[in-house]
Design a binder for these strands. Structure first.
Length: 672
DNA sequence: TTAGGGTTAG
């Protein structure tokens, strides 16, 4: 009977579905189809012959050789075949083989890792019946099982019931369970008790409790553990040192982390990766890249984790060269097949402006998960193709076995925003079980960008976001697009109340008065901003030409080729004026950069970077420029005309969006 | 022959 129950509790795996196309394909259908189809290929291999062979092998093992059976279970456990490892046990029982103290802990682990609590409880019963329940390894496996399903307190009861066979491992297990279950204080308490009771503290115990200190963000507790590690002579142990590194970072002390890192005699790939990732996460991309290169030169080879960590940094700086170099590295070292690496590569290409490269990589991916899809939906949205993103989401999510999460919904709502798909956005929003502030903000943005200001206001009032800066700013963006100055003024005034130290709000407010030529008020705002010691953002644009990044400010004459650059721009402008009858747009209402308002549009940083691109690169090649602030209307119009006049595509990356200027048009449809 | 640990992608 026990065998039957055990067999029943092992679930079968259902094969994946295939995409079915019945109607003729449009161009966009074809594009989506290509993106989807590579995910729906499944390899269905007949297993009957394999099973027959396996059973034959089982029949040949002598009944007395439990050791051999344990090894088979262990092999499958190590390979991640948990279901198979569990299936072996009834096969043992059928053949009259007796399990020993080595068998059951492995099965408990398999049940936990395959998410089969019922099976685990059956094994617990078997252990009790066979008299193994006080065995050291079994107790630890039971703690892990019950700790996982019923919580750390239940694991603690299992631990307490076993008074004789506790050791460093079971104590550490308790510390770990409390940490992972958001109870770092209790985890630290357990560790202190462990020290008081003079249980042997080893490197793993130290690493585990340091995780608790980091989770608690308690530098005080972390330093105490650091002292214990020093006393035990374990502070330079690579596991302990890496855990110390992480603890200092989690507690916000990069100084402490650098100190540990610099003292380490042996740094492994984890030490380097941890530090590199800290710089990426804190926006210091150049420092991160510098360290990444240093890691290579010190002979430590980046692995899939290191690469996945540095790629978001490459995506954030304009030089796409670094990302491509790392892509080549992943191919050379065979880590380009790793899922996280592939997702990070697709994301890097999308965010570096290489939409085609990103799509090609995505199509080639054998497995696609929620992150892959999110990256693509967000990417299409960034490049002004929101409708492609929304369609891809609908078609591909059917084949995903995971639920749509918050970040995914965020990406889809952004895509709806770009495509101005109001009804679609509303229906997506209804699917979100517990919307976050950013989802509400995206809904307000969707309504405001469609000019539905009354509906946006009602939505804000219904959900009580009247005093939320993030939500109000999205409403303001809609006002900017529709030149709704009256509402914009009210919002900006509210924003300055909500965020008195944000200089951007005062610049916006000052610009609103500039529109109506109230220069005395404008002047007083400028003085106020200066007196408060606040620094408004300056506008910069940069372009990479022959592996060198060239940076421009508004009215910049510092570049060695400035003279040539301005001269060519003037010739081009005259041509455009003569042939196209173009008149410069000088309306700077709701424009947020002072220095640009004071300068003629052809002197704006993005125009200088574009002009430099035109004189420094081969005809017909794409010009890629990045700007730290959004593009003004006159530069946008000019860039469109230039793209047509010179027959080149110009890709301008601004925060949150890419403008692809081609043949006199822009991918954003002039809606920005 | 077995357990507890440090770095990753939207």
């Amino acid at each position: 009977m026990a065998v039957v129950v055990l067999l029943q509790s092992i679930q079968s795996i259902t094969p994946s579905c295939f995409l079915d196309v019945k109607k003729p394909l449009t161009n966009r259908d074809w594009k989506i189809q290509n993106l989807v189809s590579s995910n729906s290929q499944s390899s269905s291999v007949s297993s009957s012959s394999k099973l027959a062979n396996t059973l034959k092998v089982f029949d040949e093992i002598p009944q007395s050789d439990t050791f051999a059976w344990n090894n088979i279970v262990q092999t499958h456990l190590t390979n991640g075949d948990y279901e198979f490892a569990m299936w072996i046990y009834p096969q043992m029982l059928i053949r009259g083989v007796s399990p020993d103290k080595h068998t059951l802990p492995r099965l408990l682990t398999a049940s936990r890792l395959s998410d089969n609590f019922f099976y685990g409880k059956q094994i617990h019963g078997q252990a009790f019946k066979l008299g193994f329940f006080q065995e050291r390894y079994l107790v630890t496996a039971l703690m892990a099982l019950y700790g996982h399903y019923d919580g750390a307190e239940v694991a603690k009861r299992v631990f307490e019931q076993c008074s004789t066979n506790r050791n460093s491992v079971s104590w550490t297990m308790l510390v770990k369970l409390f940490t992972t279950q958001d109870k770092p204080c209790l985890a630290i308490e357990v560790f202190k008790e462990m020290v008081d009771k003079e249980i042997r503290v080893d490197a793993v115990a130290l690493a585990t409790v340091l995780g608790a200190c980091g989770a608690l963000k308690s530098l005080r507790e972390g330093k105490k553990v650091h002292d214990i590690a020093k006393k035990l002579g374990l502070d330079l142990d690579v596991l302990v040192a890496n855990s110390l590194l992480k603890m200092y970072m989690d507690c916000g002390s990069i100084k402490g982390a650098r100190m540990v890192f610099d003292q380490m005699r042996l740094k492994d790939v984890i030490s380097w990766t941890a530090l590199v990732n800290w710089y990426v996460k804190n926006g210091e991309f150049n420092e991160a890249l510098k360290l990444f290169r240093l890691m290579n030169s010190e002979g430590v080879k980046p692995d899939s984790v290191s690469v996945s960590g540095i790629l978001p940094g490459c995506a954030r700086i304009s030089a796409g060269k670094n990302g491509k170099e790392i892509h080549a590295y992943t191919i050379r070292n065979g880590i380009d097949i790793n899922q996280a690496v592939q997702n990070a590569l697709v994301d890097m290409y999308m965010k570096s402006g290489f939409l085609e490269s990103a799509s090609k990589l995505f199509v080639r991916m054998k497995e696609k998960d929620t992150i892959s899809l999110t990256v693509m939906v967000l990417g299409y949205s960034l490049h002004g193709q929101g409708e492609v993103g929304v369609e891809l989401f609908h078609k591909l999510k059917k084949y995903m076995h995971t639920e749509t999460d918050d970040i995914m919904y965020d990406a889809v709502l952004r895509a709806c925003n770009t495509a101005r798909m109001v009804d679609e956005g509303k229906s997506i929003f209804k699917c979100i079980r517990e919307p976050k502030v950013e989802h509400y903000a995206l809904m307000v943005s969707l309504l405001a960008r469609a000019g539905l200001f009354d509906e946006a206001k009602t939505f804000i009032e219904e959900h009580h976001f009247e005093w939320n800066a993030e939500v109000q700013r999205t409403l303001l963006d809609g006002c900017r697009i529709y030149q709704n100055k009256k509402m914009a003024k009210r919002i900006v005034e509210r924003l300055t109340e909500l965020e008195p130290l944000n200089p951007d709000n005062y610049v916006l407010l000052s610009n609103l008065y500039a529109v109506s030529a109230q220069w005395d008020i404008v002047q007083s705002f400028r003085e106020m901003i200066r007196d408060m010691g606040l620094i408004p953002k300056r506008a910069y644009s940069w372009i990479e030409v022959r592996n060198k990044v060239h940076v421009f400010e508004a009215g910049d004459v510092s570049h060695p080729r400035s003279e040539k650059l301005y001269h060519e721009l003037e010739i081009l402008m005259n041509k455009i004026k003569e042939e196209e009858g173009y008149i410069l747009d000088t309306d700077f209402s709701l424009h947020d950069v002072d220095e640009e308002r004071e300068c003629i549009p052809t002197g704006h940083s993005e125009m200088l970077a574009i002009s430099f691109g035109l004189i420094s690169t081969q005809p017909q090649t794409t010009i890629r420029v990045t700007k730290n602030l959004r593009v003004c209307r006159s530069c946008h119009s000019l860039a469109k005309i230039i793209s047509k006049k010179v027959g080149r595509e110009i890709i301008l990356k601004v925060p949150g969006c890419f403008h692809h200027f081609k043949d006199g048009l822009c991918s954003c449809g002039d809606f920005y």
